[in-house]
């Protein structure tokens, strides 16, 4: 049997590399009984349609950016709350609190999570060095979701909506002058062509997730199911390691190309964490029950 697997990112993104290894592992472990054909860079379905395509069994398996579902339930978006879980240890803790809750939510949609891998922590890209939160005031700050818009407002920056492909042009024309993203995205889009400073504020570690359609999974012979689950567990471990290595490697690439890689001042960090705390308070008042449960479990650990 051959499974088509749509993934949103290009072939050189470490998530895609990891998924191709996962596919190879499955094929090897099942001696070809299950082959997974990976369709990268959104070539099969646009990113926004992948989850629903798996749900309605157009494809059995797919990958997407987990917090795009935060409008459906706050539990999906916990990993994109600034400064809630800002290191790999915290992110791992958060994932173990989040996983059982979203597994239940996904089950309602006939979906089963296989594995989830974080992007390196999000840092700050600016032209000038940012020493305190006050330095952010007045900057045109790229915001692509509600949380970032709120974040920009609290930092007294001006939120600007720019779609990802427009980023280089937006920087070079002055439409935006600050953004938060991972070192991976920064290095891959050659951020040094338009900004000169990366401040490693490590704000949050958003995750990609691979889900499978439960009914199509259940139809597999038991030994194949076991092989898929085993390969998925390995892919999760490997993916987290790749993410750690990626964070350092991509920061090095940016440094080599002349960007200043700055460790944030204590003053900046305490200011940013205050903003994060304010946002968490807001979040708690509006989050779903499932979202609250993830947070409670995370804080209890």
């Amino acid at each position: 049997e051959t499974w088509n697997m749509p993934v949103p990112y290009g072939d050189t993104t470490f998530h895609t590399v990891n998924i191709r290894e996962f596919a190879a592992d499955v094929a090897e472990a099942t001696e070809g009984a299950l082959e997974i054909e990976v369709h990268s860079a959104g070539s099969l379905f646009p990113h926004g349609e992948i989850k629903n395509a798996v749900r309605s069994r157009q494809v059995p398996i797919g990958e997407f950016f987990l917090s795009t579902l935060s409008n459906e339930d706050a539990a999906f978006g916990v990993d994109s709350q600034p400064f809630l879980a800002a290191s790999y240890e915290e992110a791992e803790k958060l994932w173990s609190a989040q996983k059982p809750v979203i597994t239940e939510l996904f089950a309602e949609q006939d979906l089963m999570p296989l594995f989830s891998v974080p992007w390196p922590a999000q840092g700050l890209y600016t032209e000038e060095e940012v020493l305190t939160v006050d330095d952010l005031a007045g900057l045109r700050f790229r915001a692509y979701n509600a949380a970032l818009e709120k974040f920009a407002q609290l930092a007294k920056a001006a939120p600007v909506q720019v779609e990802a492909p427009d980023i280089p042009q937006a920087f070079s024309t002055g439409q935006v002058d600050a953004m938060m993203t991972s070192p991976s995205t920064g290095a891959n889009s050659k951020a040094w062509d338009f900004v000169s400073t990366y401040t490693a504020v490590d704000a949050w570690l958003p995750k990609n997730i691979v889900v499978v359609n439960k009914r199509m999974f259940d139809r597999l012979p038991e030994d194949v199911q076991a092989a898929v689950l085993e390969a998925a567990a390995e892919a999760e471990t490997r993916g987290w390691e790749m993410s750690v290595a990626e964070a350092d490697a991509k920061k090095a690439v940016m440094a080599e190309n002349g960007m200043a890689i700055v460790t944030p001042s204590d003053e900046l960090m305490s200011g940013l964490k205050d903003i994060g705390a304010t946002m968490m308070e807001d979040w708690k008042t509006s989050a779903s029950e499932a979202g609250q449960k993830v947070l409670a479990d995370y804080e209890a650990e």
Partner: peptide, 21 residues
Amino acid sequence: PPSIILIVYGVATEQSIARLF
């Protein structure tokens, strides 16, 4: 530039879109 096709190519292959332009 600007070019839809260069954006598509740049995103798929992780080339710098600014340089492609």
